[in-house]
């Protein structure tokens, strides 16, 4: 008996002890990490500014980061000592090692966003924020483990290429959505996730990476187009934050986009595509089961409440929930 109590006590004590240790640990970390986060953010920002060929000074960075100028200057001085940046006439430039470091942080950020998209249920609007924090906490080893776990992705969920672990990064491709021509058909390649409010507006309109666009035109500063053949319009600012193009392995579909969920029992359709918003394991499992473009599919059985519905695919019966069937496009036959 006493053994039981004893064990329970030890157990509780060890939990408390562990917690305590962790708390102390956290305190220490935050103290000396404060500066690390700022330094890394500065490197990242200089990299981005240089990419846009913008001249980069202390003020530019401090306004971009919304941080005190003195503090920023302090950190830049430290970075200079570490030989990550050099300053010529107040203009700050990344050194080779500074660029490598910046690319590393960008890699962590985009990797983590991809991880969140594929392996968690977090809302797409929070990916960026979470990744912004995690990018400073990851070490090389953990990052590579995450990468391996999600199949070493080369694009993040917004369509930005992820720098390779050796620091290679391709040029961005595609044109801005607002530059498209009347009746041109293209595919959304990239949605800029900053500033956040614009990104949110785009997401709220149901636009996602991989959706097919048929362009109509710009009327009164409103950009009009069909997204998967559904009429849609965005402001110019929003449209400028979307890049479109046709990836090499893309199949363009001309004609109507009907949802699988619109089939009633006994009706048949032919699958034309699966929305890219069906991601990760979920997407792969559905395709593994034979739900791929070109497949004939028949609604066979409705469950008692009407959701899920069982479909006949390639000689098998697969039940899908409504929220999945809504992301599978078909044409009726």
């Amino acid at each position: 008996m006493s053994l039981f109590i004893y064990l329970v006590l030890i157990f509780i004590a060890s939990i408390l002890f562990l917690k305590r240790k962790q708390i102390v640990f956290l305190f220490k970390k935050i103290k000396n990490e404060d500066d690390k986060i700022l330094q890394e953010d500065i490197l990242k920002n200089i990299y981005q500014l240089q990419k846009q060929n913008t001249i980069c000074k202390t003020e530019t960075i401090s306004t971009r980061l919304n941080e005190d100028k003195v503090k920023v200057q302090n950190s830049i001085n430290k970075l200079q000592k570490l030989n990550f940046v050099n300053t010529v006439d107040e203009e700050i430039h990344l050194t080779e090692s500074g660029k490598t470091y910046a690319l590393k942080i960008i890699r962590f950020h985009r990797l983590y966003e991809k991880f969140l998209a594929d392996k968690t249920n977090l809302n797409e609007k929070t990916w960026h924020k979470v990744a912004d924090e995690i990018e400073h906490k990851l070490n090389q080893e953990d990052a590579e483990k995450i990468a391996a776990q999600i199949g070493n992705p080369v694009y993040d969920p917004h369509g930005d290429p992820i720098p390779s672990s050796s620091g290679e990064l391709p040029e961005k491709i595609g044109i801005s959505l607002s530059e498209m021509k009347h009746n041109e058909i293209s595919v959304v390649l990239h949605i800029e996730d900053e500033p956040h409010n614009i990104y949110e507006n785009i997401v709220n309109k149901g636009i996602y990476k991989g959706i097919q666009i048929r362009f109509l035109g710009i009327f009164n500063n409103e950009v009009s187009f069909y997204a998967n053949e559904k009429l849609c319009s965005l402001s110019l600012d929003e449209a400028n934050n979307i890049q479109v193009g046709i990836p090499k392995l893309e199949k363009i579909h001309l004609g109507e986009f009907k949802k699988l969920s619109s089939l009633s029992v006994g009706e048949k359709g032919k699958i034309i595509g699966i929305a890219k918003s069906l991601r990760g394991q979920q997407r792969r499992r559905i395709m593994d089961l034979g739900i791929v473009p070109g497949t004939i599919i028949e609604a066979e059985l409705e469950s008692i409440s009407g959701d899920p519905v069982a479909y006949r695919v390639r000689g098998t019966t697969i039940a899908l929930r409504k929220n999945q069937a809504e992301k599978i496009y078909i044409e009726k036959i």
Binding site: G280, Q282, I318, A319
Partner: peptide, 13 residues
């Protein structure tokens, strides 16, 4: 379990 990924598939053998 807020952030955990969820997927659904059910085959009717």
């Amino acid at each position: 379990l807020k952030g955990e990924i969820s997927a659904f598939s059910l085959e009717l053998p």
